[in-house]
Each structure stands twice: as structure tokens, then as C-alpha cells.
Computed example of a mutant assay.
Amino acid sequence: MALGDLDGSDILGMLMRAQELAACWQAREMPQTLAGQRIALVVDDGGWRNTTAFDLGARSMGGLCVHAPLRLNATEAVEDLAAYLDNWFDAVVCRTPELEILYALSHWAQAPVVNARTRQNHPCETLGDLAFLWHRRGAIEGLKIAVVAPAANILGSWIEVAQVLPIDVVQVYPARWHAPGASPRFRVATDLGELQDYQITAALLDGLRPDLDFLPCPPVTRGDEVSADAMRHRACRVVQAKAFLLHAQNAALEWVFAAP
């Protein structure tokens, strides 16, 4: 349910496998490692990128993915929903607002449950970005990730992964929106003078280190928190990074089913 729940070696294994699956995708030679697996895709709060990637990825590797239009924490008890899903599916990929509800589904279901996003964390988004950074740099050890965002799901997963991988995460935002509980690999900062009233611009990016990768998390509004010229800046690699969302999630599905 959270990257901090996993061993660092498991996450590293997924990131390495994502590199192989990226090559398979480009060659249109995806391994059929999910053949025969039946996966429920439960989308309880909108969004399209990572759920579409789960659907496409599962099918491309031989699995059967079905959209189940149910809502958690509504009229049916989670334990009942879990039992009904277990009748038909080998795994459940679920995107829902509350992490605690997802933990409840995982507790009651016999099938493994994959967290496709909550308000508290977004492990798939972080896995995808890490897989891209591995592709770009050949490793992730020693990375410093600056998250310009309030305490919410994107920051939540970066904090989680900093608990188990050798990367450093700093939240750069006004103090009233800081995440609680700083740790050895996570800290907060309020020095925002160079961030020009919290908008990322091309001029700001020009003043940062030349090997910077700028990965604004979709959806972003051009001209609001990110300027239009920043989206066109040489350091902006968000499109390439989001390509690796598919590969990282495919690697995660393989890991769930203990596939090679």
C-alpha cells in the first residue's frame, strides 16, 4: 500500500526490471508473464494515466484486465466487496481517496491489492519517475529530489521511498504546508526566494544545476504553478518520465505475481 512497506531490494528489483520491459516495449516483444492472470481495475476517484497504463500493461503481457465500476466505503462493506472480487480475480488494482480503506481491502481480500493512488500517497507515480531517472542516469543512489508541493500524495510517496532507498528528499514549501516527521533522508525547507512566488519558470530552471531533471507532476496548469516556457525547457522531461510509468507498473505487476 506504501513504498515504505517494501524492502529496498524489492523496489530496486522493480526499477531494474522496468528498464528491461522498456526495451521490450520499444521492440514490441512484451513477455507474456501475466498470461492467465485476471486483474480487476477499480477506479474510485477519476484519473486516467496510471489506470490506463495498468490496463494496457496487463493486456500487453497476456493478462485479462477488467474495469470493475464499484465504489469503496459506500453502501457495501469492504469485507463483502473483497470477497466478491476474490470470486473472479487474481489481483485488484485500486485507485481510491482514502489509504485506510485500501488497507482494509487488502486485509480482507485473498488476492493481492495494488495501490494505484490515494490522497495520502501515489507509489506508482514515484516508481515511474525513479525508473526514468535510473534510465537517464544509470543509478539512483545519491539522488536529491526537491519536491515543490504541499504535504499531499506525491510528497507522501517520496517520503516513503526515502525510508528504504539511498536518496534524499527535501520539501521546498511554506512552513504551514510542511509534511510532519522529518527523518534522516527527508527534510523541509522554506527558502523559496529563488522560486519566484512558487511558480517554476524557465528562468528559474536556467539558474539551477545543468544536469537537472524537471518532472512536473501531471496535471499541471501552464501559466499557474508552472510557466509555459518551463514546460518547454531543456530540463523538462515529464513526457519521457511518464512513459516509464507504464514500465514501472508492469514491473510491479510481475512482482505481485512473483513472475521472473
Rank of each mutant, 00 (worst) to 15 (best):
R38Y: 07
A53Q: 11
V161T: 13
L204F: 09
E98Q: 14
H107I: 04
A175L: 10
P31F: 06
G156E: 03
H178E: 05
W158N: 07
T201Y: 04
A22L: 06
R28G: 13
A162V: 13
V66Q: 12
D90M: 00
F244G: 04
S183P: 08
A235I: 13
A252M: 13
L56Q: 13
T33I: 10
A241W: 00
P31V: 13
L3M: 12
W177I: 05
E20Q: 15
D80T: 09
S157L: 08
T190M: 01
M16S: 15
Q32F: 11
G207F: 04
V161S: 09
Y198R: 13
L155E: 03
R237Q: 15
V170W: 06
S157T: 09
S183H: 12
N73F: 03
A228C: 11
T190V: 07
T201N: 09
A83G: 04
Y84M: 08
L102M: 15
I101D: 14
C217V: 15
L195N: 09
T96K: 01
D211W: 12
Q171A: 08
E225D: 13
L3K: 05
R117Q: 14
A189L: 08
V42C: 01
L133T: 05
E160F: 03
V226D: 08
P174H: 08
F54H: 01
G36P: 06
A53Y: 09
G181D: 06
V42N: 02
L34T: 10
P166M: 05
R176D: 15
D129Y: 07
R176Q: 14
V256Y: 02
D206Y: 06
L204N: 00
L204D: 01
D80Q: 06
L192E: 11
N87I: 07
A258L: 03
H67Q: 12
V220Q: 14
A162K: 08
L12E: 15
L21D: 06
V147F: 04
Q163E: 15
A23F: 11
Q19M: 12
Y84R: 06
A162F: 13
A139P: 01
E20A: 15
R38W: 10
E98S: 07
I154G: 04
D168I: 08
I154V: 15
D86K: 09
G46H: 11
A27C: 09
P112V: 01
L21G: 07
C65W: 02
Q120G: 14
D229W: 03
L3S: 06
R119I: 05
D197W: 05
V164Y: 04
T126Y: 02
W88P: 00
A235M: 12
K144P: 02
R176K: 11
F244A: 04
A58P: 03
L205P: 05
P218K: 10
D44C: 11
A146G: 12
A109C: 14
L34G: 10
A104Q: 14
A228K: 08
N153P: 07
L72E: 09
W177P: 02
W108A: 14
A259S: 05
T96P: 01
Q249N: 05
P123A: 07
C94G: 02
L81N: 10
R136P: 01
F257D: 02
W25H: 15
A252V: 07
P216H: 14
L165S: 05
P210R: 11
W255C: 00
R95S: 03
W25I: 09
A251V: 07
E79Q: 14
R117Y: 00
R185N: 15
L15F: 11
F132M: 02
L133R: 01
E141A: 13
G128E: 08
